[in-house]
């Protein structure tokens, strides 16, 4: 496959360099070159909000740094948790003196590195709270929700937590509302084509022609079932059914809907999916407050899409509407 890279081993370095140059109006490179920091961070007296994750999900993680959004983001290798040191340095960069919250995804590596970083920060007197995202419905059954992966729902968790911090929320208040946000998110991914780590050079799994992987992970983890490829309408209906059955929301609930491409799916196909998604969600009596469509959280050049449905209440709806300035429209 033909790609725009210089050196397969320097993909993350080169990405970060170009990223910081492009967005110097809203963010900067931290002292640790694997940490991205919002231009105004740390804000004295405000709870610092950070995340971190592997690269390859752009704009995932680093693209959500900014005003009224994340104060700092730890950057990992492609598809690999950032180091404990990078998480620790992100905590330091975000520390405005009233504690820092780390809002991250449920992956073994991230769990361990965050835990070590929290301990290092505590030794310096920085209080750190954490919320772990687990919105990916297909990654574990409902009774094992704590095992589920965090995927695109993390964006809503960041938005809600960051907005609450901006409004002067205490560390506990920010933690509680970020937890509420992710508890009310459900996501599903469908993969039509695999992705390739440049340093590996070939896809790490195959999706046979005319098939699709339902429940695919954000790192090319194979899905939980393989099915013949169907029409966009049928796929969108399946995605809605899986997400909404798990969600079990009463009619009249307001929701935010996020349809994200996984990297190589054109935007028009996301709109084709959304045509059915809107119909299906509305047919269940749910009220769509806002819809987000685009490459919000990708997996290199994977072909596919994710659907996230975020059930709102008065508090999270108001926080969702707080204006933010990051690289993506939120």
């Amino acid at each position: 496959m033909q790609r725009f890279i210089n050196d397969p081993n320097l993909v993350v370095e080169d990405t970060v360099k170009g990223f910081v140059k492009a967005h110097s109006d809203i963010l900067r490179l931290g002292q640790n070159p694997r940490v991205i920091v919002a231009k105004d961070a740390p804000v004295a007296g405000k709870v610092g909000v950070i995340t971190g994750g592997g690269s390859g999900h752009e704009p995932g993680f680093m693209g959500y740094t900014g005003k009224n959004m994340l104060d700092a983001v730890a950057v990992g290798e492609l598809f690999s948790s950032p180091t404990a040191k990078s998480f620790h340095d992100a905590i330091r960069e975000a520390n405005g003196g009233t504690g820092v919250i780390c809002l991250y995804g449920n992956y073994a590596g991230d769990n361990m590195n965050v835990k070590m970083a929290v301990r290092l920060a505590a030794k310096e007197g920085i209080e750190v709270a954490t919320v772990v995202a687990n919105d990916d419905v297909c990654s574990a059954p409902p009774h094992e929700r704590e095992k589920r992966r965090g995927v695109a729902g993390e964006i809503f968790m960041w938005k809600i937590g960051s907005a609450r911090a901006t409004q002067g929320g205490s560390l506990e208040e920010v933690r509680a509302v970020a937890q509420k946000a992710i508890d009310n998110c459900r996501s599903i991914g469908v993969g039509l084509g695999p992705c390739t780590l440049p340093a590996v050079g070939h896809p790490n799994f195959q999706i046979e022609p005319d098939t699709m992987e339902v429940g695919i992970g954000h790192h090319g983890e194979p899905g939980v079932r393989v099915e013949p490829l169907k029409s966009a309408e049928a796929i969108a209906r399946d995605m809605c059914q899986i997400v909404l059955d798990d969600h079990n929301l009463p009619a009249g609930t307001e929701v935010a809907v996020l349809v994200s491409g996984l990297g190589a799916t054109p935007l028009n196909e996301l709109y084709i999916l959304n045509d059915t998604i809107e119909t299906e969600i509305s047919a269940r009596g749910l009220i769509i407050h806002r819809t987000y469509i685009g490459n919000y959280f990708t997996s290199l050049e994977m072909v596919g899409a994710t659907l996230t449905v975020f059930a709102l209440d008065a508090e999270t709806k108001a926080l969702l509407d707080v204006e933010a300035n990051c690289t993506m429209k939120l």
Partner: peptide
């Protein structure tokens, strides 16, 4: 090793 490697292998 810890400063170079994130993932789960770093801490382990």
């Amino acid at each position: 090793f810890l400063n170079a490697v994130g993932a789960s292998t770093g801490p382990l």
